[in-house]
Design a binder for these strands. Structure first.
Lengths: 241, 241
DNA sequence: CGTCGATTTGAAATCTATCAACGATGGTGG
DNA sequence: CCACCATCGTTGATAGATTTCAAATCGACG
């Protein structure tokens, strides 16, 4: 059940059989949720932690003027609200983009597992920092990259992240988003997203059609969009205390 | 020595005498650093944690094309690289904006203090999440707010953060930045920052002159720039596990 | 068949960047 | 004390990117 999560952790940490067993023995609730459903709202203080098992979701904030801004995409193996308990409540909302199955893990149980399994604790902190690192890169994207590069960069990031949980083919992957979703995530208007997609397609860099991304020339695309995978910290752990 | 840090923590947590004593007994190194000095570089793996004692600094990334993008402002009481050890190395650089004094705390010593003082551990995690929360708000700013609102929003945020460590007067504070710095932080050109400052001044919302911010009408400014202090999580801890 | 959501296209409006230049300031060295 | 230089703030004009508005097309689905 926790396969994507474990897969992600194993890429970077030496997870022992005991660690894995501890995770697998957690008493979780598995819930299917339909697409476009906000299952965590800003201000909530959930007593369960939510983990994506399948499907795509996003963190977002709804602004006063009705704009919805996507703060991060959540893919299988990602936690929605890992640290909510520390801040008291979440300051963003979470909603599904496609049909999803969400795993709910009781807060208290998870905490005690982490207490007795330091590697897991470390891994979970690492995931939280990864979120932050991605956030920083998005900030850079919106500020410094042209609309076209921004969209290209996003496709690169998603490829790497989906690879890490085994959800990509060679250089293509399913992406159940609309162009409007990409607009919400990049801060571009839907119309402009459309034009940028056409341009990227015309330049034989990426195609995004029928909810499927097909990267035609990965090398050229990463070069063009200034994508440097370092910020995803996906390589195995070499240093550290 | 650690006054700003303790002040910040106390606003939200019940810090006991023992906790405070533990912090104060840390063997720290105090270093004065001149303005505009990068003392942590992307890729570094410092064995000390850096805490701002006085002055202004920033996290930033230098891009290939020479652009410098500020990811966050660091004020007294803020850590520069609290979690660097978990990721192995920092993925951003840190530099002073004004003359600063920086406190260096040995990583290992800090860790053991946190292990024996759960409230502090909690507080430190909270600070790290706060960083992330501010990052999210910046992302929203650059994507959804006009240049003028963005600058106004920044002044609101800094007021609140400086208040939390006792570094503001009524509704004004010293801010040792140039207009170019504000540009690097907001992703606007220096020229445009200048015009926005003039406009904000003309509308009797804020003045920024001689390294000093004077908020003329806080209520109007927060309303105008869509500032909601919730994301700073500064109120005292009411909920939580 | 009609409808709804998603994608596509075109034209105009708006915002922000860029380029270039100027004034003010403060510090430095002669 | 003055000349010089560098940095910062200011102003104007122009160019480019992106948004907004409006409308057409397309496909899926009841």
């Amino acid at each position: 059940m926790l396969a994507p999560l474990i897969k992600k952790l194993e890429r970077r940490f030496a997870i022992s059989k005991a660690d894995r067993a501890a995770l697998e023995s957690l008493e979780v609730i598995v819930a299917p949720i339909r697409a476009r459903n906000s299952f965590i709202l800003e201000g909530d203080a959930p007593d369960h932690t939510h983990l994506i098992h399948s499907g795509f979701a996003c963190r977002y904030k709804a602004l006063a003027d009705g704009t919805r801004l996507i703060l991060s995409f959540l893919i299988p193996g990602d936690f929605c609200d890992l640290n909510a308990h520390l801040l008291g409540s979440v300051d963003y909302s979470v909603r599904t983009l496609s049909d999803c199955t969400i795993i709910q893990i009781p807060r208290g149980e998870l905490n005690s597992t982490l207490l007795s399994h330091p590697i897991l604790d470390r891994g979970f902190r690492w995931m939280s920092l990864l979120d932050e690192s991605i956030l920083r890169e998005w900030l850079i994207s919106t500020k410094c990259r042209s609309a076209e590069k921004q969209v290209g960069h996003l496709f690169c990031e998603l490829l790497m992240r989906l690879q890490a949980v085994g959800l990509s083919q060679e250089e293509s992957y399913d992406l159940p988003l609309t162009q409007a979703d990409i607009g919400d995530a990049t801060g571009l208007s839907t119309v402009h997203v459309n034009r940028m997609l056409q341009r990227l397609r015309g330049e034989k860099l990426v195609e995004f059609r029928d909810k499927h991304v097909n990267i035609l020339n990965l090398k050229a695309l990463t070069a063009f969009s200034g994508f440097n995978p370092r910020y995803l910290h996906l390589s195995s752990e070499l240093t550290g205390t």
